[in-house]
Design a binder for these strands. Structure first.
Lengths: 344, 344
DNA sequence: CTGAAAGCGCTTACAG
DNA sequence: CTGAAAGCGCTTACAG
């Protein structure tokens, strides 16, 4: 990145009085170098601000020490509006990459785009991390063809048997159960669910089923009349809550499939003259930063994004090294704030 | 990224019955190729799913077709909490890079880290985009040394004469002025400012001064007793509003230096029993997605992030090509919602 | 318009 | 422990 001519390993070799091969050994941390020699070379390298040329190195080793992050979104979604939860993931993935000496190429894609076409054969990255919302049944085939092509990837999402490739996800079912149990303990019985609840969106669906499992354990069940589809956005949450209200079915709690949906729903509820939590408990999912600043503060389910990022990177690197890698489910925790009627 | 052996330009050459050089010419879009030959080569390349090896290409051309985005943060800031505004920028930068055929390497850094050490000489990127909040007087020296080393970079931030390097930023002064004029028109006179207002944080300072300019034009002025320092976060906004209230100085409007600060301040004001906008007008800056979903919805100043991302990338690429590049100021617009007392 | 050839800056068997 | 040499897959003057 400088205009001045860059130092090469040959320059270092001359100055240090060794061969270029030795310089390379020193800088790649090879043990086959005399300690004294190493010191001398390192000193010269530092002095000339020498850095190994990544392209030359990668060309030779056929490894790029780079991972690609593909953030994909539903084509119908607003372009500029990415779930804050994914931003937390982006941060933790970036840091995990840094810890593992990997660079991170970031790209936004539409679900409809041809993911594999680009990174696959140009050696830009050794593997890719897939992160996004969208119709699972739609991109499932894409995952399948990635597997068939031998592409290394990890995906953040629902972890289910028989999926193509390796997935890391949080325990959505357990999260839903925690929410259901908590609302039951607060005396709520008619729990509405705002978010898609079908195999097209398995993460939301698992949250729904977890909540349902809690109700069933108490001899109750989720009422399909209280479920309204919504993608993860404030707008969708607002619209879904209006739809719910318009149905005229009684409910005493809203379980929003994501915090964004919860924020939108809370606005719609307030405009309808309903008090949260006095009239309706509201619970979200994700624990985005804003959840502490809604009024009232939002009870929600927190996912460990730091661990998630680390695990995504580790699992992908395992594949890159040819080691076996498996899907993992991460635990979640219920964060109780005031919107449910209990707590602080 | 595939396990199967990758096709090279030589494979394509054999199959297409031309030399490897011709294949290279076709794939780099050279005009020196017969149309028929081009067609044949392209067909074979498509069939074998051939992609130019980026490392080989970059090694040869000494260009990486990759830009680096450094998101830096104040070391004191919460690691996981990045300003939503920067996420919008990240999205637009990513898309602009895609349009210009550039890959984007993303990295998070602390203000204290040694930025230049990493990307500078390893040829990972042709230039870098700097995006972050932090004490300007602290990182100014770093910018200066980047310039001296001939590193190509653009920075998002305040645009002022005599700055090291090239900056793209929005017209913070004009934004502040719009806010001041609007609040005056609504009959507000005592405008508090929540956010740092010193040359350490020139973007906030310009917003402050713009508002002050509007007041001065009306024979008034900002009252330093109504200014409270705050970095860009909800927590800081909450704390700053409490400090302001504790001072016991009367005020009828709050101009928050960012939407995040505004969100925190609105919570503190509500807890103090103040009505927005009846008792106090609140205006933010950035127009983050959440601004439409605060209660009441937040009046704020919108920056054109799409144009900003495009301009950052374009300006950086101009430098990479050795063309002159200059700092640019982008216009802003006032988005009137209900928190100021006017509008919708 | 096309081909043969040099060379980008490394890594890594191979030989000592 | 060290060096000489081959070669990773391209691009681009050079010659025709």
């Amino acid at each position: 990145m400088r205009r001045k001519t860059k130092a090469t390993s040959i320059d270092i070799a001359h100055r240090a009085g060794v061969s270029q091969a030795t310089v390379s050994r020193v800088l790649s941390g090879s043990p086959l170098v005399n300690a004294e020699t190493r010191k001398r070379v390192e000193a010269v390298a530092r002095e000339l601000n020498y850095k190994v040329d990544r392209h030359a190195s990668s060309l030779r080793t056929q490894r790029s020490a780079t991972l690609a992050l593909l953030l994909f979104e539903d084509p119908t979604a607003d372009e500029s509006h990415i779930n804050p939860f994914f931003h937390a993931m982006l941060g933790s993935i970036t840091r995990a990459c840094a810890r593992h000496g990997q660079d991170l190429l970031v790209s936004f894609q539409q679900l409809s785009d041809d993911w594999h076409a680009d990174y696959e054969d140009s050696m830009k990255a050794d593997g890719m991390i897939l992160l996004g919302y969208g119709d699972y049944l739609e991109y499932r085939d894409k995952l399948q063809s990635l597997v068939e092509q031998g592409t290394r990837f990890v995906r953040w999402g629902a972890v289910m048997p028989g999926q193509p490739g390796v997935s890391i996800g949080c325990d959505n079912h357990a999260g839903g159960r925690l929410v259901g149990e908590h609302l039951l303990a607060l005396g709520r019985r008619r729990i509405a669910f705002l978010g898609d609840a079908s195999s097209h969106y398995p993460e939301f669906f698992e949250r729904y089923r977890g909540c349902d499992a809690a109700l069933q354990a108490a001899g109750l069940a989720m009422d399909p009349a209280l479920q309204v589809d919504a993608e993860s956005s404030e707008e969708a949450g607002d619209a879904a809550a209006r739809t719910l209200l318009a149905r005229g079915q009684g409910f005493d709690a809203v379980f929003a499939a994501s915090d964004l949906i919860a924020v939108g729903a809370m606005r719609a509820l307030a405009e309808a003259g309903l008090q949260v939590p006095a009239d309706v408990s509201v619970v979200g999912f994700d624990d985005i930063p804003m959840a502490r600043f809604t009024r009232p503060p939002l009870t929600t389910v927190a996912q460990d994004t730091t661990r998630a990022g680390e695990l995504l990177v580790e699992t992908l690197l395992r594949q890159v090294r040819g080691e076996p890698a498996e899907s993992t489910l991460l635990p979640v925790t219920l964060v109780v704030r005031r919107s449910c009627g209990a707590g602080q």
